[in-house]
Lab assay of single mutants.
Amino acid sequence: MSIQHFRVALIPFFAAFCLPVFAHPETLVKVKDAEDQLGARVGYIELDLNSGKILESFRPEERFPMMSTFKVLLCGAVLSRVDAGQEQLGRRIHYSQNDLVEYSPVTEKHLTDGMTVRELCSAAITMSDNTAANLLLTTIGGPKELTAFLHNMGDHVTRLDRWEPELNEAIPNDERDTTMPAAMATTLRKLLTGELLTLASRQQLIDWMEADKVAGPLLRSALPAGWFIADKSGAGERGSRGIIAALGPDGKPSRIVVIYTTGSQATMDERNRQIAEIGASLIKHW
């Protein structure tokens, strides 16, 4: 067993022997301040990774656009098919120029040779490549099948209805392509620590998230040296922004954090800054 596999296998073990965790309302004060600064709703939840206990939450059962955070769930569904012998990570998928959609920095470079399922998941999570996500959605049967996968996990809230990039439209009061912070946090925890996926697939999923290259201005910008984070960000229309993450000190994750916002007129930089400040408060009061 590799060191990384050992780390993920012992996530519940280490967490069980940690000192009790206590909620700190100071972080919620910052979440509410972010709402004021952005002029928009902000949803927040913080779960203990081992027990699933909610440590703090704000608007945990209000719907927010998922945006690209759905790509972690998508690759979880792909990995479940791999575990069941219905898919192979090494299978190569070929596609054409007509398949390319807006923001496809990886797939646009491989029109000639195609990409493997493993490479597509890596591109979808680490670079948020939209064509990679659409190609992977095709392998599982489309958005409705991802929703069905989530329902089978016990998540009857999260739903995907459309493809990239239309799913980022974020129309107010439109339930399409949305989740709730509580539902997303619980589902992410199941994917990373539950028995739904094999140990190898859980490790692969967290490795992809740990290698995320496009979430630097968010929670990662607030992390002290030595902290662990595996995350996936999302951005959408109407001032929408979000991030889902597993993080913790001492090089291992111990909490799940989900943050979503929508309806702001603020710039992307300002949305990023507010999420980073929430992260800084979380870490300060850990």
Rank of each mutant, 00 (worst) to 15 (best):
F6I: 09
T69D: 00
Y44K: 00
S122G: 12
G194F: 09
I140V: 09
A148W: 09
R162M: 06
I243A: 04
H285A: 09
T261E: 06
T261Y: 06
K252R: 13
L196I: 15
A183F: 08
Q204I: 10
D231A: 06
P25L: 10
R202E: 09
L219D: 04
Y95V: 08
W208H: 03
Y103N: 06
L74Q: 02
A9G: 11
Q88D: 13
R202G: 07
Q204W: 06
L219S: 04
P105Y: 05
A15K: 04
N272G: 05
V72D: 00
S96W: 12
D269M: 11
Q203R: 14
E56D: 12
N130V: 01
T179M: 01
V78S: 03
K232V: 00
R189T: 10
R59C: 04
D129R: 00
V117L: 11
G85A: 10
R59M: 04
A15T: 15
R159L: 06
E56V: 08
Q274R: 11
E87G: 05
L74E: 04
A182G: 13
L160Y: 02
V42T: 06
F22M: 10
H110P: 03
Q97M: 15
H94W: 13
G242Y: 00
K284A: 13
A246R: 02
M127V: 12
T193E: 14
D36I: 14
S68Y: 00
S122T: 09
R220K: 06
Q37S: 13
K144F: 13
D174S: 07
M268E: 06
H285E: 10
L219A: 03
D99F: 07
S240H: 06
H24E: 12
T112L: 15
W227V: 02
R7N: 10
L205W: 03
A266K: 13
D83L: 02
P181C: 08
L188M: 12
G43L: 00
D155I: 01
L10N: 06
D113S: 11
M66S: 03
A34D: 02
A170H: 09
I11A: 10
P12S: 12
E87A: 07
W163N: 11
A183Q: 12
V82I: 11
W227T: 02
D177M: 01
T69F: 01
M209K: 00
H110W: 08
T178M: 03
R255D: 01
S221P: 09
I275F: 12
S201H: 15
L100R: 05
V8T: 15
V29M: 11
N134C: 04
R63I: 08
Q88A: 14
D212M: 03
T138M: 13
V72K: 00
K30T: 15
N130Q: 04
T27F: 04
L146K: 00
A182I: 15
P165V: 09
